[in-house]
Design a binder for these strands. Structure first.
Lengths: 211, 211
DNA sequence: GTCTATATAGTGATAGAC
DNA sequence: GTCTATCACTATATAGAC
């Protein structure tokens, strides 16, 4: 049997999950609190009890996601294997719909970004998210460089925002018109920033990735 | 005196301008048709007469903006002078609030991108906009290369989406936290992609741009 | 903590006068 | 073409029962 506290925590998570999926799918403003509640098999009263109002729900959602994206990126970057493959894998995390809740992980990111730009309290949460992402990328860049696989045009901390920008910017174009950004172009861009393939201490072939 | 046709065209433009400013400032979904009409000194009836409904207004707005952004980018890229300065100028067009309607040119862009991702008819308009932007950048890249100032990592058509991605992606991070993306970092990224400064047939100094 | 019911206000859209 | 008035619908938020 579930204790009251377990039920409370469960409801909270259900509401957050439902909100994330619906916001990504239809947009934040287009989704009513009632809709979120119903998707979580609760009523609007539950939302108000937990989060006060829609803004509270948004802030809670942003906070709960701070570590999630970081985990995804870290997973991609920590895979053993060719460094070049890692960058492509990272690109696919952005470009292709990963398992996640709905198909639209990045759509939710863009929704939240826009929201944070207009609601001061949310801004700090999202800024922290981006900071964490940059920190992780910088760490990987440092590792690449130490192994002699990368030839960075600057410090890892300078290059990190560039990598993030490239991924996000290409994803935006890719989503609108996939043909405009083939995988090869993404690889070209990421290599240009990281200097990967420039030093080239790699022994094997590179045109075709066997896997 | 204004003829009826002039008044009609004037109303249409006023409505589009008001919509652009309000959508950028508060978000598309948060702005009612009544609000748009009142900001243009008209009533909601005028909006319905001109555009049918809100979706019609959005499509008309997207269409009217197709050439506008292209004009801005073309202006930045056609300025005579150091090629390095041109890239920085282009970055400032994205990072700093240019004169435009409201201060939030890029916010409107993000609103429209998100909207186009959920409304098929609008998608084509926005895709055309991006295509045009890439075409312009590719043209400049070709010129840079011909002058021996750039050392592109790929064809101009391949590099164009990379430049656009870098600009947009850095702008997103910059808007959330300006300190995270100083001008020098942006310059670093753009140079890494364009190879500008690599071939270095340039005679003058580079650390400090005299102007 | 959660639900039901309700108060209050705002939305997109239409009809008809001018 | 534009405005006024009005439609049906949906939103957020609250009060009180359980």
């Amino acid at each position: 049997m579930a204790s009251q506290e377990e039920r409370k925590a469960d409801t909270r998570q259900r509401l957050l999950d439902a909100a994330a999926a619906l916001f990504a799918d239809r947009g934040i403003e287009a989704v009513s609190i009632d809709t979120v509640a119903e998707a979580a098999d609760r009523t609007s009263g539950a939302v108000y009890a937990h989060f006060g109002n829609k803004e509270g729900l948004l802030n809670a959602l942003l906070e709960s996601l701070v570590n999630e994206t970081a985990a995804v990126m870290e997973a991609e970057l920590s895979i053993d294997g060719d460094r070049d493959d890692q960058l492509i894998a990272l690109w696919h995390t952005f470009a292709d719909p990963p398992p996640g809740p709905g198909r639209g992980w990045m759509l939710l990111e863009h929704e939240l970004w826009l929201y944070a730009n207009r609601h001061e309290p949310a801004r700090a949460h999202l800024a922290a998210r981006f900071d964490e992402a940059r920190r992780l990328v910088a760490e990987s860049m440092r590792a690449f460089e130490a192994e002699g696989h990368a030839d960075l045009p600057g410090t890892p901390e300078e290059v990190a925002p560039l990598v993030l920008a490239m991924l996000v910017g290409l994803e935006m174009q890719h989503r609108l018109d996939p043909a405009a950004v083939p995988d090869e172009t993404a690889a070209l861009g990421l290599r240009a920033i990281t200097g990967l393939g420039a030093t080239s201490t790699r022994p094997a072939s590179r045109k075709k990735t066997s896997r």
